[in-house]
Amino acid sequence: MTLLSVQDLHVTFGTADGAVRAVQGVSFDVAAGETVAIVGESGSGKSVTANSLLRLNFGADVRIDGRILLDGRDVLAMSEDEVRSVRGRDVAMIFQDPLTALNPFYTVGYQIAEAFAIHHPGTSKKELREIALDSLQKVGIPEPTKRIDQYPHEFSGGMRQRIVIAIALVNSPKLLIADEPTTALDVTVQAQILELIAQMQAEHGSAVILITHDLGVVAEITERVMVMYAGRVVESASVADAFSTPTHPYTRGLLKSVKSLDTERHERLESIPGIPPSLINLPSGCPFHPRCGFAETLAGRCEREVPELRLVGASRSACHLPEDRLLGLLGGLS
């Protein structure tokens, strides 16, 4: 069953330098309980997309167009109060940096209880404390009865991220958005946090949108992956397909830029040549064409026409190359 349906999402920021077109025509669905990853280079619009789902795009001059249907209700058409009641209850967020995500002036117990109390007015203090204790226990904070009255700065980064997760899950949301939840953490802690998210998801049955740079993370806990480039989705596929038969030159580049994940053999590390385009002055046609090794084989079409997402094998890809070439991207050139 479709939980979330994003249709033709556009997000533009007015800045002194001109309009930053951070997201351009992104569409995707997330089914209830499904785990979807969004990957892409820095600045590709992953966070902006995620933030628009709860209308959390701040900034002086933001324009959001399109439709974001959550259980059939358009988030973009809701009143302030309606969005507020969705935030934290139906859709919860985990941000990147746990060191700054918690309010330094209140105890962690208070902050967990608060997240519950906002959406369940009239809950007694005693009940709230029970709920906070229970949450701390579930996310693996040792000695919760003692820790509940401590302040965020008394916890390590990994522990704080667990608390952020506890806050996110206290209302059993239908959708959990995790924007690079492990990037700011110690490598040793990263795996634990991911495992915790996976475990919590299994328990609550929430759908998860996981934003990450780390393809290893994608392989580990998600079912489907969306690759973003310059504010567009360029490929959408099951994780298995994306890794075995990427159907977009950019995805192929991403895969090449990390060590091989499922074999012992170390592939040569190469990053995608060139830099991401300016979102104020986007290249014509396919935004990837200045960096794409295949563009010249298509006689200028890449510079003229923006490729739309279409079905290629079992995946969806936004590239002008013919289907057979897209399906053979890895084989032919590696």
Partner: peptide, 13 residues
């Protein structure tokens, strides 16, 4: 600050 954004994301009035 990030914690204010989290506050908004929590649904705080």
């Amino acid at each position: 600050e990030e914690f204010v954004r989290l506050g908004i994301a929590k649904g705080l009035p």
